[in-house]
Structure formats: C-alpha cells, structure tokens
Amino acid sequence: MNNRVYSTLIIDDEPPARERLSQLLKNFPETFNVISTAENGSQAREQIQRLQPDLIFLDIQMPGLTGFEVLEKLDKLPVVIFCTAYDQYALKAFETNCLDYLLKPSSP
C-alpha cells in the first residue's frame, strides 16, 4: 500500500475550478497536500520550478502559456493530471505521459 502524500499544485485560470478541485482534494489528506495554486501558465512554470511539486492538476486552455506549453518549458516533470473542459485534447495529453485526463467539472 502506498502511504505517500503528494505535494500538489493546482493550475487553472478559473478561480471556481481551482477552489472546487482544492476542496475535493481536502477529502483525501492521506494522498494530497495542496501546496499552492496558479492561475496561468507563467505562474505555473515559476511555481513548478520553485516548489518542485510531486503532482500537478493542469488545465490546458489558459492565458499566456497553454498547459502543453508549460510542460514543454520544464526540465523536470512532476506527475501530471490534466483537468480541462475540452475532451479533444485527450490523445495529445496522453502523449505527454500524463497520469490521467479529467473533464471539468470535477467530482469525487
């Protein structure tokens, strides 16, 4: 059994989506420790490099850098779970070796 708690970063340009996912993850404190959130690709890149999270929940369509562009600019990738409202990016997402692809709105 895996007893690891993953340091987690939530990246989404929509405040309600960030808050909803954060609240959902609070139900699983034995698995997720949300260390921060980011509201765009530039913030995401900076926080990933600075905080070195184990896991990120990453939106795709964001101002500035898309979720895919964020990943392209990183030297070391955390585990990635895409969380987006668009199902047409699923194939491309799995080509990035993401762990999962969730469609918003998120639910337990």
Rank of each mutant, 00 (worst) to 15 (best):
M1Y: 05
N3W: 02
R4H: 12
R4A: 11
V5C: 06
Y6P: 04
Y6C: 10
T8S: 09
L9K: 09
L9P: 08
L9N: 11
L9Q: 05
I10Q: 00
I11G: 02
I11H: 00
I11K: 00
D12W: 04
D12G: 06
D13G: 03
E14M: 10
P15A: 06
P15F: 12
P16C: 10
R18H: 07
R18V: 15
R18W: 03
E19K: 13
R20A: 15
R20E: 09
L21R: 00
L21W: 05
Q23R: 14
L24V: 10
K26W: 05
F28K: 14
F28L: 10
E30V: 03
E30F: 05
F32A: 12
F32N: 08
N33K: 11
I35S: 05
E39Q: 14
E39P: 00
G41D: 07
G41H: 04
Q43D: 04
A44P: 15
R45F: 12
E46M: 09
I48P: 14
Q49A: 13
Q49C: 12
Q49H: 04
R50V: 14
L51G: 08
L51C: 10
Q52D: 13
Q52R: 15
P53R: 03
P53E: 04
D54Q: 07
D54R: 01
D59F: 06
D59Y: 05
I60F: 01
Q61Y: 04
M62S: 07
M62C: 10
P63E: 00
P63G: 01
P63Q: 00
G64E: 13
G64P: 04
T66E: 02
T66Y: 01
F68I: 11
V70L: 14
V70S: 13
L71S: 07
L71N: 07
L74R: 12
D75T: 15
L77G: 06
P78E: 03
V79F: 02
V79E: 13
V79P: 01
V80D: 04
F82W: 09
C83H: 00
A85P: 10
Y86T: 04
Y86R: 02
D87S: 15
D87Y: 00
D87E: 14
Q88I: 09
Y89V: 09
A90K: 15
L91P: 05
A93Y: 09
A93W: 08
T96G: 07
L99N: 01
L99K: 07
D100S: 14
D100L: 06
L103N: 02
L103Q: 01
L103P: 00
K104V: 12
K104C: 11
K104F: 05
S106F: 05
P108G: 02
P108M: 01
